[in-house]
Design a protein around this nucleic acid. Sequence first.
DNA 1: ATCCTCCCCTAC
DNA 2: TAAGGTAGGGGAGGAT
Length: 1222
Amino acid sequence: MASSQERELWGSEDPDYLEALVNYTFSSEKKSPSVGTKRKRTASPEPESDVNPTLFTGPRPPKETVSSKNENYVYGAANFGGFGEYMFRKRAKLQIQNVQLADEDEGTKKPQIFKGVAIYVNGFTDPPFQDLREMIMAYGGVFHAYLDRKSMVTHVIASQLTPAKILEYQRAKLKVVKPEWIVKSVEAEVLQRWQDYTLQPGAVGTVAALGQGTDFSGGGSRTAVVDVDQPSIRAPQKTLAEAFASRKHSQAASSKPPTVQKPPEPIQDPLELTSPEMYASDLLNTTPGPSRSPHGRILNKHLGGSDGSPSPTRRVTDPNTPGSGPNASAAPEPTEQPSYAMYDSNPVAAKLMESTEWRRQHTSANPQAFTESYFQNSRLHHLSAWKSELRQLVADAREQAEKAEELATQSGDSKPTMDVDVTSMQGARLPRMLVPKRDKGKGKESDRVIMHVDFDSFFVAAGLVDRPQLKGKPVVVCHSGAGKVSTSEIASASYEARTFGIKNGMSLGQARQLCPNIQPIPYEFEKYKAFSLKFYTILMAFADDLQAVSVDEAILDVSERVAQLKMASDDPGDRDFAKELAEHIRDKVRENTGCEVSVGISHNIMLARMATRHAKPAKSYHLLPGDVPSHLAPLEIKAIHGVGRSIRDKIRDKFGVETLGELLEKSKDSLQRLLGEKTGDKIWKAVRGIDDTPLESDKPRKSVSAEVNYGIRFENNEQAEAFVMNLATEVSKRLKAVSKRGRFMTLKIMVRRADAPLEAAKFLGHGSVDCYNKSASISDGRGGATDDAVIIGEESWRLLKAFNFDPKELRGIGIQIQKLDNVASATELPRGQARLSFRTASKVGEAKRPIEFSDEDVEILEIDRPPSAPPSRSSNIADLPSASQIDQSVLDSLPEDIKREILDSLAQNNQKVIQPKPTRSKTVPSSRLRNEIDLTAEGDGSETRSQSLPPSGSQTEKGSADMLGVPQHFTKAVSMSPTKAQAGGPGISKAAAARHITKQLAPKHKVPFVSPNKHGLFKDRTDVDDVELRALGVDPLFFRELPKDIQKEQLSILRQQRSAGTRNSLGPFERAASRASSRSRSPSLGPLRTTTAPIPVASYTTLPQIKKLSKVDDVQNMVRDWVKYRKTEGPSFAEVDRICTYLVKCAGSDIGLENVTSIMRYWRMILREKWRDEEGVSKDEIIDVDGNTAGLAWWNAFRNVKRKVDEVVKKRFGCGLALGRT
DNA sequence: ATCCTCCCCTAC
DNA sequence: TAAGGTAGGGGAGGAT
Ligand SMILES: Nc1ccn([C@H]2C[C@H](O)[C@@H](COP(=O)(O)OP(=O)(O)OP(=O)(O)O)O2)c(=O)n1
Ligand SMILES: [Mg+2]
């Protein structure tokens, strides 16, 4: 039965596959390769015309099927739209204020429809309390935070109240109405009859408000509201879900009654195996595994010894055998668990691979088609992509809100806020944290109310929305569905399935052994995305702050929100508002998605997560401080977020403890010695329920990558090269999608281990492999960051070629880009512009560059770019292009030993003799029996285990990695063989020598290979930007202060106008710019200036540690951290504005002025330390060696703030603030 | 001390 | 059939 269903769900149209299945004899060992057996499928398309229909089409439900769109930057069809108008609830009021201000500007003031109306809001409402409050106030009403006999409240707003409560109010002569009354009145801008909105005793919480009330589009601002088109909180939408959800095989499972048989025996602690690197499927493989260390770890047999043979940086290895440790076993292992795969080498795959045609249709042998369909169907790829998109959306919404907040504040919204104002928006004025992660709330940790929200069995839950008949049954989401021995991975298992021991990450085959009647359902990526968007939209309405964790999970700070609820309640009593809010959120999500989420609440993130675990499924749980000790004590170590198998084992091996309670006895010091400073401290604190980690919602992206470690099967180098180029194109797309460009890249390679079977246990999996990485600098022609697919692709291919691997042995390829610059501030200019900038740049650059680029950088090595190569491309640190590219004279200048090494390496390289050492490898422990169970699961500890090299191995590993026979850097840099040429020469170790060279090469590449004097290079696109900006009539200073997206947008508009010859008419941006400059133009910048302000006591210039006021000191520290935090990308608009607001405010008071001077001086000092350049007016180019423009942005920010402060000071004292020279 | 590079580890 | 990606915290050890 299952099979028929499966067929219906997935179908199986691949004749070759079917044949392979049929022909395979399970009980026997592999059959002899019957070549030529496979014939082409009946109705198959020609090989090339259509790449491979089976990958794209197929009987899969059209719904979830990826409808890839062109605009999607990745193959994924599941990008999120933007939250666009969504805002954090907390900021909603500001939006309204804005609207109001705007209206006032136009002379259109909101009609005071609520004049004479005094309102009190009770309990949870939709829209939220604060939104209502703002609406009421904006339209002339009075808002009361308390309800006592003295207040003149006329109306009580509530979505739901107990009959008793309603009566009580009515007796007090209060009108009890629903929120819609407010909303509708605002929408119509006319006071509606309250009688039409009275709250009836019987009314259920189904506040219609969500349905429609929230949208007060009438006011001209919908900022605080969920847009109707987007999946919103309101209408239970049928939208996407329905649109896509064809009723299709909904009745597929109908055959079986909803009876679930009981699981054989709940597995408590399945062995854990897999790990990111070590997958359970590969455990069976290795026969003669690496030797085992005392602790059950596998010792890495040292490959590539001194002979220079290659050594992997890593080897994907065995998940350590369960309980193999000495003490082991605290957890009784279920002895009967199915293994990930039944065979060491997948017989079906082996057979299919015999067919060239099949390979070209289903593996990397067909780069373009394979990559595309692979990413479209990779759940892990989607998970990662969604995560970063969500983070970006949250960051955007936040930035937008903050901007609005600033505007509202600045514009003087000093209008007297009605009476109370418990909630006051003072947040906007306080010098709140600049850097989010900073100790914004030290000391008040206990006051935080953190909520962790996570869907229960997300993929399954989403899938069951359209398959109600499967609810209550053991269901799993995975590809395929056929095959008794399927190696298809289970992305999500229902709670019913979990009772059988099935876990996320297991193979379907394993699951079948645990539960023969397991019901697999297909993926529906589009639906997950849509649900997630609704989910986040809902959360945003209730959170003070929000951190996106993943597509189905988020962390909220609801401290303020809960405090407000409490204050607004006339009868706080002992109600747990946090829990009520959690349930409210659960209701909302259920209404909108039909899925259950669980909520964990506590006073810090770690505990909130633990609370969620306890709550699941379908519940909420508030872990109170008093319950923490007893709650944590019995949990296993892995229950701490961030503690995986490796750390758990280290602790277990060292202390022999299994639970958090036992860990309490270990000293912090011993933990730090074992795990490292930070990790040890974290664990020590965690065990005590301590976690001061703040929510992180706006961290800048540090890398962008794309990798494929599945289905990689090349027949020759041509295919490999094509694949690499294709992957580079993918990375390029991703970079462009986030407006980033990089200056450094790393190629990640997986190679089949010699002892691993040709075909892995997992169908087309990578199997047991060795990992190798190689890095290189990349740049556009001007030494700037790049996102060019060709540049990245060529560099990647060169790096790969340098390894000289047999293409047939490759099993994984990845390209990662680092050292990112934002496009807005990086290069993006057409040639012409570049040239323009060049002039300016060289002018400025020549003066300072020489200093930064010492002779060694520039003169030691010069590499001429082959004329054929586009001048734009430069490689770097990593291998030298070729012997012909090395300037002989430069070579001659090198120490003899080093020179020899270089030549040797080049020679070897040419001979293709070099064998790199893997940095890592993945393998299987020999001890693992084929039928043992290993399983993976994420939830509990069973999954991933990655085996780190044994201590000794690790060290050696590390050492060898660095030296690889020779210094790793050198090796990399020169693509040379591992031979440890002994050159240790005078004084320097070989490694040191290599590094030395590397260093010389590195900077050199990023900049050109030539001397700056010679060619006046060193121009920086940043300069370009400034020059261009000026050419466009824009003040660079002002421009830099704008949010990146605005910068980009304005830039393109201006360029367009310019090219269209419209330049003379002022564009919106130009107007803004001129306005800005005139507004703050003040000569105050000069370091010297008379002062009225007392000179700060200490000269931080010389002694930064001197303190004056601890408060000042705190601010200074914050500034220091801030600069450090944003050192590579410059400060954000919101941050600068905040510090500016703070300083201006301080400057307005006598006491504060002194502090302002101190802080400004300190800030300047920090900037001077980091970016030499002074804030001199004449020069505005501060570009560091890497071409980064952060320094420029920082100085601009400093100058702007200084200007604003000066304005204030000038008004009071007649002249600007004097900071003195130093 | 602190930075930088090259990993390892973890999470979903 | 099957889709084992990817970003960021942080540690080790060398450079500065
Ligand atoms: N190894 C994994 C783990 C998770 N996921 C996907 C599917 C999950 O549904 C989703 C969310 O992961 P969770 O860890 O939150 O797991 P579930 O939501 O499935 O279950 P629960 O949260 O109830 O434990 O991510 C996956 O594809 N592979
Ligand atoms: Mg979940």
